[in-house]
């Protein structure tokens, strides 16, 4: 099955980023396709390269980057939501790209299921 994911809450504050990540890993392991992961609302904070959690905690941002590199998952950050929260190309972690909300609607159209994490 082809899944689109929407992450709509910030990392560490809310479990949405963890749940979405765990789901993506599990779905890929089962042979499903992750068509795109779209970051909206405070979810855009998943994409900043300045994230530095304590060493004994998971690194949510690096985890996304690794997922993008290993499985070619398309990680898209909403431009309007990002800019209003101080996220731009200069602070973007590898593997993410900034684009418009049309990419979320496109996921809704092209994926078999669009799953919302957060909200």
């Amino acid at each position: 099955m082809k899944f689109g994911l929407l992450v709509s809450e910030g990392p560490y504050t809310h479990q949405a980023s963890d749940s979405a990540y765990q789901f993506a890993v599990a779905a890929l392991a089962k042979g499903h396709e992750i068509q795109r992961i779209f970051f909206y609302h405070d979810g855009v904070n998943n994409a900043t390269r300045h994230t530095e959690p304590p060493r004994d905690d998971r690194h949510i941002v690096n985890r996304w980057t690794a997922l993008a590199q290993e499985h070619k998952v398309d990680l898209v950050v909403c431009v309007a939501a990002a800019l209003r929260r101080g996220i731009n190309e200069a602070v973007l972690a590898p593997g993410f790209r900034i684009s418009g909300l049309g990419q979320l609607v496109d996921s809704g159209i092209k994926a078999d299921r669009l799953l919302v994490f957060g909200g």
Binding site: A80, V105, G108, I109
Partner: peptide, 19 residues
């Protein structure tokens, strides 16, 4: 919270996709 406003922003985009 910002959810209502950002929801409306998605709605306006979705409308342009003829959905």
């Amino acid at each position: 919270t910002i959810y209502a406003l950002e929801s409306l922003e998605v709605v306006l985009i979705a409308a342009t996709f003829d959905q």
